[in-house]
Amino acid sequence: MLSIDRSIVDAIVAHARRDHPDEACGVVAGPAGSDTPTRHIPLENAARSTTFYLIDSMEHLRVWREMDDRDEEPVVIYHSHTATEAYPSRTDISLAGEPGAHYLLVSTREPDTEEIRSFRIVDGVVTEEPVRIVDAAVDPHAVQSYKFGQSPTAVDYECSGA
């Protein structure tokens, strides 16, 4: 099961809506071993495509190294499908490279409602899991959501109320 704070889910959905009809992608980092997503990092879809996402290799290195330095890991890797259901495609399954991560998919095909589902993808096997959205499990001001490059001391709390 994926437990994730509502403010982070709201920020992910806002990101997906913002980039629609292109696919949006990002990660939510959390302390290594905690299985708790705490730091939302929206990433740029370098493919700028309605049917594909790809994180630029240099942004990838910077973000992953930053997580390493902070003793974090990518607890959630998310992306949107903008015309189809929130279920991993064959491409998603083929390219899933983080066996420890929750793969969160958001479908923005309906203008008013979002479909949000989570999966484990290990060795080509997809396992859906429940998503538990937690209200105020953490102080909303402790939930950090910022573009890479902003320092944690200069955070825009764009996730709260987004």
Binding site: E23, C25, V27, L43, A47, S49, T50, T51, F52, Y53, L54, I55, S57, H60, L61, W64, I77, H79, H81, T82, A83, T84, P88, S89, R90, T91, D92, S94, L95, A96, G97, E98
Partner: peptide, 15 residues
Amino acid sequence: ILPAVAGGAFGFAAA
């Protein structure tokens, strides 16, 4: 070494 973070709904031929 990092496995690329990539995927997407994509078309059949491309997949």
